[in-house]
Design a protein around this nucleic acid. Structure first.
Length: 878
RNA sequence: GCGGACGUGGCGGAACGGUAGACGCAAGGGACUUAAAAUCCCUUGGGAAAUUUUCCCGUGAGGGUUCGAUUCCCUCCGUCCGCACCA
């Protein structure tokens, strides 16, 4: 290629990008060896679901990862940067239902299409390590780990309440229930009790919580979200005695969990969840109660329903005994606002200090007694009517607790009741309760990893023998009926019991797809190993992932599951660490304006023509000129049709332009607005760099480094090394938008300097420009790798810039011998002063006081104070 | 309701407590051109004087700490996000 030789020639991104991609692939320069001895660096972007098309969110995500990968390679690391496919999931089955195509065919076709798209972006990925989670070579190991977890006591089979879609006949995840209806079928979701497989993530509640503090390179936001999700609260488990005469089956106690044991003397009632066993037992003997419970089950689960729902209760007739007063009887209600899966599903109600309890007693006329008096309030006049008091204060109306603080009272209650033994155990026990629930992984779906279990009438649920793994999915399945095709397959589930050889059946549920993505990062370290999920020596070398990049939408589920899985893999000796991701970065979304026609239809940006600017800006349908309404800027989505196809952008401008724009406009953790103007700006800069490098390559620079540099040459060299220092730091801290700004500044400085070549015949300026240009190309290489290769070749290099090392900063170029300090008078800038860099405070002060501007203001007086911050600022206080 | 983040020109956004508005986009003016595109140069927070320039105001609002606050603290307003009958 003859690059940039003609100043009018444009850079042909299409042609050059394909050419360089082929060179990289042919030379396998992005393949990583496990025996590389350089310091390791593992950079990973959340792998995509193979939906069939790469979207702009992918482009943003993978560009960021690629910048880091290329930078780390240049700075001397052995970089692992792999890519794979999160390939199981519902869309494949939906495609099978809608289009009569097999999920496997659909998925693999999509993978082919998306891989081509990713390759057109010029990402420095090691494709030799590509994995797909739907490949038996992958899920075989997942099944093995399921069995290992089972053996280690980390898997449990239990009844649980699930969201059941009666039309699609499957369990739905909570996120798939929208306003109480199945997201796909629109059917009202039912609550069903099903036997399901669970991973015991709650065994690690405390560990997962406590370790968050050590994830220093995670966003605070994500750590906080996980902390809240795990939801630790300290309190008391308290067993209330029941009056046996009032209970349905002579039950004699009721256990509750409370975080406010201090308010025990304000108790007015007990309340049970409608699903509480005692409520169920009572309902069996009371049809009106049974009807009430039924009514509770039909209460809407949508947010609006919960907000407006009245607190309803039903007195069971059961009476509980106050733990400090055997004569004090409390009525036991079933109440619609008590949930079964938190604490014990039962509470004692202290209305004065809990708003829900107060609403409840006000409805049923049970009254309230305040037991915490706010500071400054007279306990005699302190009453509660409609608003519960949940603040601090001193105990009142509480017998031996009176006068104590809340904390003291809690301590006293615990101390007394811990000693109080009923049966074999204390009445109260300090308890840490977590909101985190065990992870139900059973899905009544075909396109997922089969759960390797065999059910035998006589022997129970047994693991599939290891030598029979993988349990593969049958290919001859039909999707013409709703429900799970595995369950109605004629032969697949019929097997012999591995223990008694009698007739048995396979588990037909498959695993939640979040299981697949909970360990893929470990598999990348040695995807070739056939005998085990991981090679212990290799996986422990590569992990943890040094920089993980993905969307904030995974802040809880995927990231929490992966943290659990790593711990479980450690327990089962597949890995030797707890935390999979040392550094996490959550990038913002790609958003775009929306366009809507008169009839309400949304219109794709590709079909919109924009005219005018500012207030005069109008959108119209490109084909007919029909005016369109310009709507709000929103996340690119199919529903609003405000998507831009990466293929179109790459075809029109090239991958480098798309990559550059993605990095340039907004800080990487914020949303970026995709605009045509912005892309064109990026494209112009690509062309500008191309011309700039071409011009500099044409100059007659001396072959040898000049002994001395003119002022102009020094200016160029300083600009280069300053840019180098900034860009290095900014990439390291993932501040890509600032990298971009510094590269613009640097390019501007070079453009200015080129204009001065004719006045600098000595050649040292040309030499400096040539040096600076080499730095420039290496600086923008991580962001625009194809253009960088093309420019690198233009500068006469035979090597690939992708394998070049990062330039070294010449530190002495960053320090100025003379510096200009701003001079403030009373905090407002009034002048500048230029002094030697290492000038002492007194010298600077003298120089400042000699300034005309300062003298004028002082007018003969002497200043109150002169503050000199060396190398920063001077402030004269009058 | 609880928790968190954010608020800077026409727009995206810069700014270890130290010259507010880097860099980009958009806009205006000019050069080149038969013309357009491309490119290059200049201007661009608001206001007031003015020849070089000078001064005042300005980072959601109000207070505070400081020689000095976009940055730290308090109160309020607004926007966004997460969680939620969680006992």
């Amino acid at each position: 290629m003859t690059a940039g030789s003609s100043k009018n020639e444009r850079y042909n991104a299409r042609e050059a990008e394909a050419r360089w991609q082929k060179v990289w692939a042919d030379r396998k320069i992005f393949e990583t060896r496990n025996d590389d001895t350089r310091p390791k660096y593992y950079v990973l972007e959340m792998f995509p679901y193979p939906s069939g098309r790469v979207h702009m969110g992918h482009v943003r995500n993978y560009t960021m990862g690629d910048v880091v990968a290329r930078f780390k390679r240049a700075t001397g690391n052995a970089v692992l940067h792999p890519m794979g496919w999160d390939a199981f999931g519902m869309p494949a089955e939906n495609a099978a239902i809608d289009r009569k195509v097999h999920p496997q065919t659909w998925t693999y076709d999509n993978i082919v299409a998306m891989k081509r798209q990713l390759q057109s972006m010029g990402l420095s990925l090691d494709w030799a390590r590509e994995i797909a989670t739907c490949d038996p070579a992958y899920y075989k190991h997942q099944q093995k780990m399921f069995l290992d977890f089972l053996k280690a006591g980390l898997v449990e089979r239990k009844q649980s309440k699930v969201n059941w879609d009666p039309v699609d006949q499957t369990v739905l995840a909570n996120e798939q229930v929208i306003d109480g209806r199945g997201w796909r079928s629109g059917a009202v979701v039912e609550q069903r009790e099903l036997t399901q497989w669970f991973f015991k993530i709650s065994d690690y509640s405390e560990d997962l919580l406590e370790a968050l503090d050590r994830l220093k390179r995670w966003p605070d936001k994500v750590r906080l979200m996980q902390k809240n999700w795990i939801g630790r609260s300290e309190g008391l488990l308290l067993r209330f005695a029941l009056d046996p005469a009032t209970t349905p089956n002579k039950e004699n106690e009721l256990e509750i969990f409370t975080t406010r044991s201090d308010t025990l003397f304000g108790a007015k009632f007990m309340a049970l969840s409608p699903d509480h066993p005692l409520a169920q037992a009572a309902a069996a003997k009371n049809s009106r109660l049974a009807a009430f419970i039924e009514q509770c089950h039909h209460m809407g689960t949508a947010q609006a329903d919960i907000d407006t729902a009245e607190k309803l209760g039903f007195d069971t007739g059961i009476r509980a005994v106050h733990p400090f007063d055997a004569t004090w009887k409390l009525p036991v209600y079933v109440a619609n606002f008590i949930v079964m899966d938190y604490g014990t599903g039962a509470i004692f109600g202290c209305p004065a200090h809990d708003q829900r309890d107060l609403d409840f007693v006000n409805k049923y006329g049970l009254g309230n007694t305040p037991v915490v008096c706010p500071p400054g309030q007279d306990p005699k006049t302190f009453v509660i009517t409609d608003v519960a008091y949940d603040g601090d204060g001193r105990m009142i109306n509480s017998r031996f607790l009176d006068g104590m603080t809340i904390k003291e009272a809690e301590e006293e209650v615990a101390r007394r009741l811990e000693k109080d033994i009923r049966g074999n155990s204390p009445v109260a026990q300090r308890h840490v309760n977590y909101r985190l629930r065990d992870w139900g992984i059973s899905r009544q779906r075909y396109w997922g990893c089969p759960i390797p279990i065999i059910h035998c009438e006589t022997c129970g649920a047994l693991p599939v023998p290891e030598e029979d793994l993988p349990v593969t999915l049958p290919e001859d399945v039909s999707f013409d009926k709703p429900g799970n095709p595995l369950d109605r397959h004629p032969t697949w589930k019929k097997v012999k019991c591995p223990k008694c050889s009698g007739p048995a059946r396979r588990e037909t549920d498959t695993m939640d797809t979040f299981v697949d993505s909970s360990w893929y990062f470990a598999r990348f370290t040695d995807p070739w190993i056939k005998t085990a999920p991981t090679d212990r020596k290799i996986v422990d070398e590569w992990l943890p992932v040094d920089q993980y990049i993905g969307g904030i939408e995974h802040a809880i589920l995927h990231l929490l599951y992966s943290r659990f899985f790593t711990r479980a893999m450690r327990k089962t000796r597949h890995i030797d660490m707890d935390e999979p991701f040392a550094g996490l970065f959550t990038q913002g979304m790609v958003v775009h304006e929306t366009y809507q026609a008169k009839n309400g239809d949304w219109v794709e940006p590709a079909n919109v023509r924009i005219e005018g600017t500012g207030d005069d800006r109008r959108a119209m349908l490109a084909s007919t000129g029909e005016p369109l309404e310009i709507g709000s800027i929103e996340k690119m989505s199919k529903s609003k049709k405000n998507t831009v196809d990466p293929d179109d952008i790459i075809a029109a401008y090239g991958a480098d332009t798309a990559r550059w724009f993605m990095l340039s406009d907004s800080p990487p953790d914020r949303d970026v607005i995709w605009t045509e103007e912005g892309v064109q700006g990026a494209w112009r800069f690509v062309q500008r760099l191309w011309r700039l490098v071409g011009e500099i390559a044409e100059t007659a620079a001396p072959a040898r480094r000049p002994v001395a540099f003119s002022e102009q040459a020094v200016t160029v060299r300083k600009a280069a090394h300053r840019a180098l220092a900034h860009v290095s730091e900014d990439i390291d801290k993932l501040r890509f938008n600032r990298c971009v700004a510094h590269i613009y500044e640097f390019a501007n400085a070079l453009s200015d300097a080129i204009g001065k070549i004719e006045r600098a015949p000595a050649g040292d300026l040309c030499w400096a420009l040539r040096e600076a240009c080499g730095i420039l190309v290496r600086l923008f290489h991580p962001m625009m790798p194809h253009l960088a290769e093309e420019c690198w070749a233009t500068l006469g290099h035979k090597s690939l810039v992708a394998t070049e090392s990062w330039p070294q900063v010449e530190a002495e170029l960053l320090v100025e011998s003379k510096i200009t300090l701003p001079v403030q008078i009373n905090g407002k800038k009034r002048a500048d002063v230029t002094v030697a860099r290492d000038a002492g405070k007194s010298d600077i002060e003298a120089a400042v006081l000699a300034l005309d501007a300062v003298k004028k203001v002082l007018d003969g007086r002497s200043p109150k104070k002169v503050i000199v911050v060396p190398q920063r600022i001077v402030n004269v206080v009058i």
